[in-house]
Design a protein around this nucleic acid. Structure first.
Lengths: 343, 343
DNA sequence: TTGAAAGCGCTAACAA
DNA sequence: TTGTTAGCGCTTTCAA
């Protein structure tokens, strides 16, 4: 079948094989392959040639055990499918790429017990550091983090007490800010549309901040609607239809994320509703998808890229002089777009 | 600060610590923690209690080295941000969750040199198996895969020669099928809009198949437009505007993915064009986003979930009796939606 | 049912 | 600049 396949070894190659093939001690081979210590150019060449010819791939398991060093950074996030975490990952990768550290992703699906299992699994590989979304963990999870002895960075959120370091925004404040903007524009009959996720603490905090600011102005939510599963864009349409039917006097729709907000916007435009005159809309996240919609949905950027970058910097030890335990708050910008009345 | 933090150990715990705390040999502790061999209930309890109390997390590095077994499956994909790979990951996780195997993701950004680096890094952890997108790899990459001695599953595409096993669809055929559908509907002035990505071999093959089928009917592409970077939805609009300006007689727009297709659809609807009467559109992937659009874009489902599942099953050894080297072709369904004329 | 010895493949530390 | 020795923390194997 294969004409030019190099002879498939019956067992995996070890340093010893390269050592024998190059006539140099294992130790020197190890030095060459790690670019460590002084090795003569001649020796280096011999070793590299032999390693290449044999197709040797080092065994990091043995290396890590011997050196007590692992170039892995655990990243624990609730989901990959909602557009926000891929961007966080991008920020993390950007920074780690220069450091020799490798991110390893674990996904929890917003389930505390999954988080615990993922954490246990990750920590058992003794990573150099760990980045984890959110400040809320099970007691056991928190205990593991505390006992891990490595830098822990909790990301996305800063409304709470981190185990070690934290990088994020205040979702409570973000909710408040949006509420204030909406009130300032004169809307008073406001509904909330969000995900049915008891463990999405950030969405919960945004809603709390939102209602708090409304209450301060003597305004209560007129209606609320929750969904779970399915196409967010479609759900946004359906929820919006439901709310507008049930509460015809509503003049503002606050969505817990941009995808359902986009669905709501498309629905309103389909129906020929006057946006933002008769009815305003706002989402959250600042996803780039919004740029292509017929009208720009009001939103707040969640600083995803920057959160990833800063978290990676902390793990990589780039914030020198700090003994850990730093909290970095980022400040999202409110993008009023075209779906909030100008005042 | 912390009232109830368990005493933070100055060094990480080892089996020996649990052994001493429970008065049982390391070997027996190891057995208990792995549920292996016969251990009396009394001993088991003592050990588990001690491990829990100390907050012991096993060191998988040492375990893997000693046992020559690693419960990791490498997954190498080009990108996390385009909606298709998260779904593949979901399929993989679904199957692996029952097997004790853990996926570890590496992202290549469609760069062959990154792929090579990621592969090297992954293989150096001696995973149980490896799932990798695409059939095209650098020579060195292919050599590493062949020498790895583990099950390799190349996914998404079957138009080529796999190193070992493969699960995917024929993108060439998918392109042909869509072309035939479009021709059957009577469209003749067809343009292609896609990504500017020399290393997106699957998009390339779809276009090749597409043009091949057109040629068979004596039809040539009227126009083509490529983009890179930015919001796909917005780019879809811009590209569509450009094509319609440049080639006013175009009656069909074939997009290389659903996101730009969705942008194009929104643009056409904005402009009040008669879709699908005067102009038809089609994308590729079958992303759930499409469900929320004002009109359903024609597309082909890429079988992402199923590809992930099948690949994981192969790696997990669930296809017994097969000695490896199996190729599983899946058959995407063409969803004509509302953007191709009915004939 | 439990324990003791050997060693997985590599690297730290030291010696030559 | 190169080599030797002694583990890293666990599991395999074999003995008790």
């Amino acid at each position: 079948m294969n004409k030019t396949t190099p002879p498939v070894p019956r067992r995996l190659l070890t340093l010893r094989d390269v050592s024998e093939a190059s006539g140099v001690s294992e130790m020197t081979v190890s030095r060459v392959l790690r670019n460590r210590g002084d090795v003569s150019d001649a020796t280096r060449e011999r070793v590299l040639e032999a390693a290449r010819r044999l197709g040797y791939v080092p065994n990091k398991i043995a290396g890590a055990l011997a050196s007590q060093r692992v170039n892995l950074v655990g990243v624990v996030i609730p989901s990959l499918s909602n557009m926000v975490f891929p961007e966080v990952m991008t920020g993390i990768s950007e920074v780690l790429d220069d450091t020799g550290l490798q991110p390893v992703v674990g996904v929890t699906n917003y389930l505390p017990e999954r988080e615990e299992a993922v954490l246990y699994e990750m920590l058992s590989w003794r990573p150099t550091g760990l980045i984890i979304a959110g400040l809320e963990h099970s007691d056991a999870g928190r205990a593991m983090l505390e006992a891990s002895g490595i830098p822990i960075v909790e990301i996305m959120d800063i409304d709470g007490s981190p185990v070690d370091s934290a990088v994020g925004i205040s979702h409570r404040r973000a909710g408040r800010q949006m509420a204030e903007e909406i009130l300032a524009a004169g809307y008073r009959h406001i509904a909330f549309l969000g995900t049915q996720m008891p463990n999405d603490h950030r969405a919960r905090k945004r809603l709390e901040g939102f209602e708090e600011a409304l209450a301060k102005a003597g305004v209560d939510l007129v209606d609320r609607e929750f969904y779970s599963g399915g196409s967010a864009l479609l759900k946004g349409r359906e929820m919006t239809a439901a709310v507008l039917n049930r509460s015809p006097d509503v003049d503002f729709l606050y969505y817990s994320n941009d995808m359902i907000g986009a669905g709501g916007l498309l629905y309103c435009l389909d129906k020929g509703l006057d946006v933002p005159g008769k009815i305003g809309l706002a989402g959250f996240n600042g996803v780039e998808l919004l740029d292509g919609l017929p009208r720009r949905l009001a939103t707040m950027d969640a600083c995803r890229l920057e959160i990833g970058r800063k978290a990676a910097e902390i793990v990589a030890g780039k914030h020198q002089g700090v003994i850990g335990g730093e909290v970095i708050e980022l400040f999202p910008t409110l993008q009023p777009g075209d779906t909030i009345r100008r005042t």
